[in-house]
């Protein structure tokens, strides 16, 4: 039995995992929510900003991570729109501007005034250098927005020359250039508070920046979205996906456990056999 389990076809494992994903999506279990300190800190920072404050949202992500981050973006954008904050969107990844357009279209910003309450500046090539250029002179770096409108006379930029003049930066990140580069070029030298909406895979990497307070808050992927949705009392896709996440996690841990049981059982059997052969 155990040796059969050891030789199990990978596709059987995949099928079990697929079922573990689909069943809770179709029949939700209604498990409780987790709201970590980092999520709460981001919420508190946005909550503390006065109406009309300008927040830069840097969409530094690939479509690969968008599914994981979209629910959290929707929740944070809705919170910002409800607070009357103005959103200046930009991106240093080529897919960022199109994805930002989709996120904005799915949020409460869709009812706000473009160019006054929010703007999507588009993409700038060059990674960290482009960030530094935008930080120094935002309209110089983005003379036109993603929709090719000139930025020179947009009301949202009144009184904004560099990123020193904005109240907060939110980096939506799936990798580099992303959070460390923003901290290096804007957060530390300009003293602008930075928070991030980040894929879960980077949570462990950014822990030192949280402890050193170079990063004020962090919303990790889908679970961060679920927590944020409950904080603003607008349940969405983050919450809906939480049960499927739970069961899939459990299934992977069961795979690890069964894999180890099989391994140790076979190892002890091999030891016994070699001991018998030795005795013979």
């Amino acid at each position: 039995m155990l040796s059969k389990l050891g030789r199990i076809d990978s596709r059987v494992l995949y099928l079990i995992l697929l079922i573990a994903f689909i069943v809770p999506l179709l029949c939700p279990l209604g498990l409780p929510m987790i709201i970590s300190d980092e999520i709460k800190r981001t919420y508190d920072l946005i909550e503390s900003l006065p109406e009309g404050s300008r927040v830069v949202v840097s969409f530094d992500l690939s479509p690969g991570g968008y599914d994981e981050l979209a629910p959290a973006c929707a929740a944070v954008f809705n919170h910002m729109a409800m607070k009357g904050l103005r959103l200046i969107g930009m991106s240093f990844w080529d897919a960022g501007p199109s994805l930002l357009d989709r996120s904005l279209a799915g949020s409460l910003y869709v009812d706000k005034e473009y160019g006054d309450d929010y703007v999507n500046l588009g993409f700038l090539a060059g990674g960290e250098n482009a960030m530094a250029a935008a930080a120094r002179d935002i309209r110089g770096a983005f003379p036109s927005d993603f929709h090719d409108n000139p930025t020179a006379n947009m009301p949202i930029f009144e009184g904004v020359q560099s990123l020193k003049d904005v109240e907060m930066v939110i980096v939506v990140a799936t990798g580099n250039p992303g959070v460390p580069e923003w901290i290096r070029q804007v957060g530390d030298p300009m003293g602008v508070p930075i928070a991030t909406i980040v894929i879960a895979g980077l949570v462990a990497d950014y822990a030192p920046y949280i402890q050193s307070k170079q990063l004020i808050g962090m919303i990790p992927g889908l679970r961060g979205a679920a927590g944020y949705e409950s904080l603003i009392d607008m349940l969405g896709r983050g919450t809906a996906g939480l049960d499927a996440q739970s069961v899939a996690h459990l299934m992977i841990l069961i795979f690890v456990l069964v894999g180890n049981i099989v391994y140790f059982a076979e190892r002890s059997r091999e030891k016994e056999e070699s001991a018998k052969e030795g005795a013979a």
Partner: peptide, 12 residues
């Protein structure tokens, strides 16, 4: 964390 991320993506 990576496992969590990949699971979230597939859920998406």
């Amino acid at each position: 964390s990576t496992v969590t991320g990949r699971i979230s993506l597939f859920v998406g």
